[in-house]
């Protein structure tokens, strides 16, 4: 089912934020990755690693003032970064859709949920409101909203958090996009609701063949969902691999450290091995590895030479002194 031609190819994406009175800040620093049709790709990292900015840059949703975006974002052969604002708006929702973290603030509070679904259908498929209504109800049913013919008239505040996130997914799926970007879609939800939403996403990806970029800080979410995982640190990809080899044999000390610092539900109370320091301790990438000060096994080279992302056998790694022992 998966073809080898990438659906989305991000090349050397760099996003720089201008800051008043300070030097500009490179939030995303030369990120490259590909998404094939039907594939689920994870972008994993902690706050400030650039994962959300990457997704906003792909969607062309970053505020233009003061920010510079460079590199290429090829979607089926078109560089999205070169599209005009109007062309990009046409693509959003039709070809690429996004699901955000906070479903309440992403929905318009004064418009019924059903109308918010039909609006997308009206805009991108040229349907009338009347014709779109049953389609919208179908979409709501498909994402597991009970009694959709009645709920379609509900306002967002009349729904629970889980239902809102389902509604948001329905809006995203309205035009059968070929790529869905989910930015921490379950972070604001409870675990049992998170499990429902993740199961729904998995099912939708299988049924519709849409590709999914899953952005999350939760390695557990990634472990069950993603075909390929990109680990980001300080605006750069530090490691990439298919999920099984990546979790079984993490090579980058950061990936390894993350896995060691999460308490596992199925493991008996061993002491955790935290990563020391915080993102504030990072070095600039210019002539060092940003992670070096927090690294468990730094060598001299780490603070002198910028490591490059080296690819081999479907894995990619940016490290001078990788972890050798599998977990």
């Amino acid at each position: 089912m998966m073809s080898d031609a990438p659906l989305l190819s991000v090349e050397d994406l760099t996003v720089t934020f201008g800051r008043r009175g300070q030097e500009p800040f490179r939030a995303v620093d030369g990120v490259s990755f590909q998404v094939r049709p039907g594939q689920t790709v994870g972008l994993v990292g902690e706050s400030g690693c650039g994962k959300s900015v990457t997704s906003l840059a792909i969607m062309g949703l970053l505020p233009q003032r003061g920010n510079t975006v460079s590199g290429r974002v090829d979607f089926e052969g078109t560089n999205l970064l070169e599209l005009s604002t109007d062309d990009m708006r046409d693509r959003r929702g039709r070809d690429i859709a996004m699901v955000f973290q906070d479903p309440l603030s992403s929905l318009n509070p004064v418009v019924p949920v059903g109308v918010q679904v039909t609006e997308v259908l009206e805009r991108h498929r040229g349907m009338t409101r009347k014709a779109a209504m049953p389609v919208a109800a179908d979409l709501l049913r498909r994402v597991g909203i009970p009694d959709p013919d009645r709920r379609i008239k509900d306002y967002p505040h009349q729904m629970s958090g889980g239902m809102r996130q389902r509604a948001l997914i329905a809006i995203a799926l309205a035009c059968a996009p070929r790529l869905l970007i989910a930015d921490e879609p379950t972070t604001a939800l409870d675990v049992t609701i998170q499990a429902q939403i993740l199961a729904l996403l998995k099912e939708l990806v299988e049924d519709t063949g849409t590709a999914l970029i899953m952005i999350t800080h939760d390695l557990g979410v990634v472990a069950g969902l993603c075909d390929e995982v990109n680990v980001l640190y300080g605006g750069r990809i530090v490691e990439r691999g298919a999920r099984h080899p990546l979790f079984r044999d993490p090579r980058h000390p950061y990936t390894n450290g993350l896995l060691g610092s999460i308490p596992r539900l199925d493991a008996v109370g061993e002491r955790l091995t935290p990563i020391p320091g915080s993102v504030a301790d990072n070095l600039p990438w210019d002539h060092a590895c940003a992670f070096a000060p927090r690294c468990s096994q730094p060598i001299e080279r780490c603070t002198q030479v910028t490591p490059v992302l080296e690819e081999s056998f479907g894995r990619a790694l940016r490290c001078h002194n990788p972890v050798e022992v599998p977990r």
């Binding site: 958090g161 409870d190 499990a195 557990g220 990634v222 472990a223 069950g224 099984h244 596992r264």
Partner: peptide, 23 residues
């Protein structure tokens, strides 16, 4: 059963009890 575990092997083989509805 809903808590994700950062281990693909475990995730692939787990049986989940998905609750329906909300609190």
């Amino acid at each position: 059963s809903a808590v994700p575990i950062p281990d693909p092997d475990v995730e692939d083989s787990r049986e989940q009890i998905l609750l329906t509805g909300d609190l």
